[in-house]
Amino acid sequence: MRMRNKPWALDYLKTHSNLADVEMTYAGNVSDFFEDNQDLHIEVGTGMGTFITTLAKNNPDINYLGIELDKNILIRVVEKILEEDLKNVKVALLNAADLKEYFNSDEVDRVYLNFSDPWPKNRHEKRRLTYRSFLSSYKDILKQDGELHFKTDNQGLFEYSLVSMNNFGMQFKEVNLNLHLNEPDDNIRTEYEAKFSSKGNLIRRLKASF
């Protein structure tokens, strides 16, 4: 998701440094970013923040950290955190390729990937967030019983991800090819999800562990 560039975006985020880490201040010390020492779930690619802020509101006993590369998007996420007065959700301006530089090994309880860029061209395979180098990062930062949850409407990316994860030796706990048919109670619709579903696109979800 790309937004119009806001020249003041970085300054805005820095004024809310209690919610947004834009300089990797908490790299290696993520627990210091939060008021309470609780399980940690991360979302790689926040969208406009509906998913992660809803999770945080519904689960005050879990800490949530949204990872996003676009500072303009993070403005809206921070605004939602402030609107809801949430204490257990933060954001970090971070490239997904740098997860192992930010988190310690065995630190994260769950990773969410929601409607990631499919990068459909073969030459861009290494950019897909379910490519083996990213899977290696998730495995490193996740606890032994941690899980990866992945949602998309893109059939090609979903099929690619199933093969990539299987080849990596992951164990599938759920593979749902039509999530909104008998939609599970634990599903929280992202902005993209609502948009694509309204157009008739099937939403796919999988849950897996290493």
Rank of each mutant, 00 (worst) to 15 (best):
Q155K: 14
A208Y: 02
M165H: 01
I141D: 10
T46V: 04
F168E: 09
A97Y: 10
L10Y: 00
K57V: 02
L202Q: 13
L135N: 08
Q38W: 01
H124R: 12
A194D: 10
R4S: 14
D106S: 11
T15Y: 03
T190M: 03
K6I: 00
L113R: 11
Q144F: 04
D117Y: 00
V163P: 01
N176G: 15
L181C: 10
L135Y: 09
S164D: 05
D11T: 11
S137R: 06
M170V: 07
N104Q: 08
L148I: 15
E79Q: 10
K143T: 06
K121V: 05
Q144Y: 02
H41N: 04
I62A: 04
V91E: 01
D185Y: 00
N122V: 07
R2T: 12
N176W: 06
V22F: 05
Q171E: 15
Y26E: 10
D109F: 08
K199I: 05
G45T: 14
R110A: 07
G28R: 11
L99I: 09
D185R: 00
K173E: 13
R204T: 01
N5Y: 13
H41T: 08
A20S: 10
K143H: 07
T53W: 08
N95L: 08
D153W: 12
A194R: 10
N114F: 15
F196C: 02
L157A: 13
S164F: 04
L162H: 06
T53A: 05
L94P: 00
D39V: 06
S197H: 12
M48D: 11
K100E: 13
E43C: 06
M170E: 06
S105Y: 07
S105N: 10
E35D: 11
T190D: 04
N201H: 14
D39F: 02
F150L: 15
I52N: 03
F150K: 12
E193S: 04
N88G: 08
L40P: 08
A9V: 05
V111W: 11
E174K: 15
D153V: 09
R189N: 12
H180A: 01
N154S: 12
W8H: 13
N58W: 03
W8Q: 13
F134Q: 06
L129D: 03
K151A: 10
N201F: 15
S137N: 10
Y112C: 02
K14W: 01
Y160H: 12
I81Y: 01
T54I: 09
N187G: 04
I75E: 01
